[in-house]
Design a protein around this nucleic acid. Structure first.
Lengths: 270, 270
DNA sequence: TTCGTGTCAATCATAAATGATCATATTCAA
DNA sequence: TTGAATATGATCATTTATGATTGACACGAA
């Protein structure tokens, strides 16, 4: 990891939340705290951010409009710690150079932080994720064509003759509204359509769902549980749900929320 | 592998990622690190990229490129007034609800400011334009699928089976490196390829070029002058060029730079 | 108060990048 | 073909970046 890369990551992190800790950055960049301190000091004199005790903060706190994640803000804030931990496990599944697919969603969006230091080939139908990766990662970013839906920040196309058909990923990472014995569920038919197109383009399906999603139902089944290779969730999962998942032959990864993932304050996402 | 070939590879690599290491390039080009260092040093003084410890980075960080309305490079800011005025005239050609195509470029990018208040259907191959429109306009935004090239902030796809084929616009707005009797000229073959795909998808072609572009030559012809319906330029155009344009049956619009276009820094849009 | 925790600056050893140098390989012109 | 000019790769000394350690300092809790 080189200086410029780290600083790029720091910059993106500090634009995402108004404040970020030394430890957070150290984990994100896999560098030592001493190095991060030096980086922050240097960026401080460059005027790129403000150095504060324990970390760094953005120069312009109210930067709402420029932020990628605006559409999700509300739902993003809910279980942010868990989502972060889940996202971290998801990124850990990836090796350098892998071709992966990221479906849009608040949990998958959290992956961008941990992807910043990586170099992969990433296709995503999320405009927000693409935006973030283009600005803050070394990865190749590929997007499908189509119309951009502001609300979900997704790129959707009614057509099938698309770039998506020319991309094949090792894994596809996706969220869901709910998970039950019948599979992963979504609420919006339009989103389902787009997701299913992507699902066929990947070897393995990885489902990122925090534990509150188990038992939650929706009317539309996105894909059966058998199609899913791995589910990543947090330690709030009930034994019954755990059994259900394992009975379906799905690998289960429990992400531990550690202190570093904890949001420092409620404003951290805004 | 020859010097030029290596440097071409380096340049393209640095356009796809914000930062590349010496080792990466050495592996890519099968040259020694010493040679790559020399290449980078030479390209640095040529201004083609920035030499940083451990590798090289693009001159224009995508950070600034794509963020909140800050356009591409400071050096382009010289003609910013003219480009704004030209862009304003271009937007004036559009009626509410029109389907239009915006090709990526610094001049077309200026259109976004005047488009903010409009409600149109816009297809663009510029990631930066799409980003801005999604955040700051009511228009429908459609993008082609493909890989995102960071330096030009463009979406390029080697495939022809694309959403672009399902979109038909009333007008396509595009810039050019130069304009001569043979037509509009571009410098990068990759860009040409993408542009030509779009050109076939529009009724009318509108060329946005400030007056300094007349007479400026490049090796590659993008499209013949006859294909162009309208050229918008500023009042610096020479009579000879004006005649050339009108002889080709192209409508010519001279944009007047007025006070409100003047002296406003691009950042003020954010 | 005293202890514990967390942050920070200073220091040092190690690892990595760099620049200078030289030998070899390649290109080009005569 | 030869010979000069240039490009390239390897080597090594120097510089720089990094990570670990230590002690100082501030803050809060017991």
């Amino acid at each position: 990891m080189h200086e410029r890369e780290r600083q790029r990551i720091i910059l993106s992190a500090v634009q995402e939340k108004p404040f970020i800790t030394i430890q957070d950055i150290a984990e994100l960049t896999e560098a030592s705290e001493a190095t991060i301190r030096r980086d922050i000091a240097s960026m401080h004199v460059q005027g790129k951010l403000r150095r504060v005790r324990g970390g760094a903060e953005a120069i312009h706190p109210p930067q709402q409009t420029a932020l990628a994640g605006r559409p999700f803000r509300v739902s993003e804030a809910e279980n942010i710690d868990k989502k972060r931990a889940i996202a971290r496990e998801a990124v850990n599944l990836c090796n350098e150079g892998d071709a992966i697919i990221l479906n849009g969603g608040t949990t998958t969006f959290q992956m961008v932080h941990y992807l910043a230091a990586r170099r992969l080939q990433i296709m995503t139908n999320s405009f927000a994720i693409a935006e973030h990766l283009v600005k803050n990662s070394k990865s190749t970013v590929i997007i499908p064509g189509g119309m951009i839906y502001r609300e979900q920040s997704m790129i959707l196309s009614p057509f099938d003759n698309d770039v998506t058909r020319n991309f094949y990923g090792k894994r596809m990472f996706m969220g869901a509204v709910g998970v039950g014995p019948f599979g992963a569920m979504e609420s919006d038919p339009l989103i389902i359509q787009g997701e299913q197109k992507l699902i066929t383009q990947a070897d393995e399906l990885v489902l990122l769902v925090d534990s509150t999603k188990f038992g939650r139902r929706s009317s539309l089944i996105l894909c059966p549980l058998q199609r899913v290779a791995t589910i990543i969730t947090d330690d709030g999962i009930l034994d019954a749900d755990r059994n259900m998942v394992e009975d379906a032959g799905v690998e289960l990864i429990i992400a531990k929320v550690n202190a570093q993932d904890k949001s420092r304050d409620s404003a951290s996402i805004a």
